[in-house]
C-alpha cells in the first residue's frame, strides 16, 4: 500500500468519513486500536465487576447488621446471627505476628544482599529467594501442618515458654494449630517478598549517595544505615505493605494451620480463625441467602482492606523510584 491510511483523514472530503473509517479498518489501523482498547476496557470492567458483585451480593448482610457485623462475636447460621469479630481478630493477629517476625529478618537479608555481601553471592542468593516467592501457598500449608507444627510443639514453643511464659500471649494449652502457627507460616511466606522488593529498592539508591558518605570517612555499615536505608525508606515501607496485603488475604496456608475455631483468645497458642479461612471453609456449604451474604461481606472487607494497603504500598514505592530519578 503506497499511502499510509492515516493520511487519508486529512485529504478526504468530509462526506467520505465513513468510507475512510472502513478503509482504515480494513487496513488494520482502526481494528488494531479497537481491539486493544476492548481488552483494556475489559480489565476495567472486570475490576469494577468484582467490586460491584461483592457490594451487591453482600447487601442483605450489610443492611441487617450494619457496622456491628465487624464488632460482634456471634456466628450462628441457625439463628441467622452473624458477627465477624473472631475472624477479623484472627486475620489481624496472624498478619501482625507474621510482620513482627518477617520485617527484621527480611530487611536484614535485603540489606545484606544489596549492600554488604559480595555481588556474586548476592545475585545468586537473591535469585534463589525470589524463586521461593513463587512457591504456591498450599504447599506452605502442607509443610506447615506436617513439618512446622510438630517442630513448634516439640521445641520452639517450650523454649519460648521458658523465657516468655509469664506473658499472657504464651499461656494456655498448645495443640499445635494456632494463631502462632499461622503467623509463623505467613512470615515464612512473606519474607521472600520483603527481601526481593526491598533489595531492588535499595539497589536503586544512586551510587553517588554512597560515595558521598564513604568520602567523608563513613564505613560500610554507617553508609548503609545512615544514608542508603533512609533514602530507600519509603520504598521499603512499600514492600512491607505489599507483604501485609498478601498476609491479610492469604487463604490456604492459614486455613490449614490456624485451627478454624471462631473464638477470640489472648494467647497466641490458642486456635483461631481468619476471614479468608472462614470463606474457604463455609462458602460452598452456606445455606440460605443471609449466610452466603455474610460470607460475601467478609470478602468485601478483605477486598477493601487489601485495596487500601496495596494503594499505599504502590504510592510509597513510586515516590522512592521518582526520588531516585531526580537527583
Amino acid at each position: 500500500m503506497a499511502t499510509t491510511p492515516t493520511l487519508d483523514r486529512h485529504t478526504l472530503p468530509s462526506g467520505g468519513r465513513v468510507r475512510s473509517f472502513i478503509k482504515r479498518l480494513r487496513a488494520g489501523e482502526e481494528a488494531a486500536y479497537l481491539l486493544t482498547l476492548a481488552a483494556a476496557a475489559t480489565i476495567l470492567l472486570i475490576t469494577s465487576l468484582i467490586f460491584y458483585e461483592l457490594y451487591v451480593q453482600s447487601a442483605l448482610s450489610r443492611h441487617k447488621f450494619g457496622f456491628h457485623f465487624l464488632f460482634t462475636q456471634t456466628w450462628n447460621p441457625v439463628t441467622g446471627d452473624f458477627g465477624a469479630l473472631p475472624y477479623v481478630y484472627g486475620t489481624v493477629v496472624t498478619s501482625v505476628l507474621a510482620l513482627i517476625i518477617a520485617i527484621p529478618q527480611g530487611l536484614g537479608s535485603a540489606i545484606f544482599l544489596a549492600e554488604l555481601a559480595p555481588p556474586k553471592i548476592s545475585d545468586a542468593l537473591a535469585f534463589l529467594i525470589e524463586l521461593l516467592a513463587a512457591v504456591p501457598s498450599v504447599i506452605f500449608g502442607l509443610l506447615g501442618m506436617y513439618v512446622l507444627v510438630p517442630i513448634l510443639q516439640s521445641s520452639v514453643v517450650p523454649a519460648l515458654r521458658t523465657v516468655f511464659g509469664f506473658l499472657p500471649v504464651f499461656q494456655g494449652a498448645f495443640y499445635g494449630v494456632s494463631y502462632f502457627a499461622a503467623g509463623v507460616v505467613l512470615s515464612i511466606m512473606i519474607v521472600p517478598f520483603i527481601v526481593s522488593i526491598s533489595r531492588e529498592v535499595l539497589l536503586a539508591v544512586p551510587q553517588e549517595q554512597r560515595e558521598a558518605s564513604l568520602a567523608v570517612g563513613a564505613n560500610r555499615w554507617q553508609t548503609t544505615w545512615h544514608v542508603v536505608v533512609p533514602y530507600a525508606l519509603k520504598g521499603i515501607m512499600g514492600s512491607i505493605f505489599l507483604a501485609l496485603a498478601r498476609a491479610l488475604g492469604e487463604t490456604m496456608a492459614v486455613t490449614m494451620v490456624i485451627g478454624n475455631v471462631p473464638q477470640i483468645k489472648a494467647s497466641l497458642l490458642a486456635p483461631g480463625y481468619s476471614i479468608a479461612a472462614v470463606i474457604a471453609n463455609e462458602f460452598t456449604e452456606a445455606v440460605g441467602d443471609l449466610y452466603t451474604s455474610a460470607l460475601i461481606e467478609l470478602g468485601l472487607v478483605l477486598f477493601l482492606v487489601t485495596f487500601v494497603i496495596n494503594g499505599l504500598a504502590r504510592l510509597m514505592i513510586m515516590t522512592t523510584t521518582r526520588q531516585g530519578a531526580h537527583s
Binding site: 553517588e208 558521598a212 567523608v216 570517612g217 554507617q222 533512609p230
Partner: peptide
C-alpha cells in the same frame, strides 16, 4: 563529586554527617 550529591536530609544534617560518623 561531579554531580552534587547532597543527602535528602536538612542542610545542617548534611554538614554534620561527617562529624557524626567520625
Amino acid at each position: 563529586f561531579q554531580k552534587s550529591n547532597p543527602f535528602p536530609k536538612s542542610i545542617f544534617d548534611n554538614v554534620a554527617f561527617g562529624l557524626r560518623v567520625n
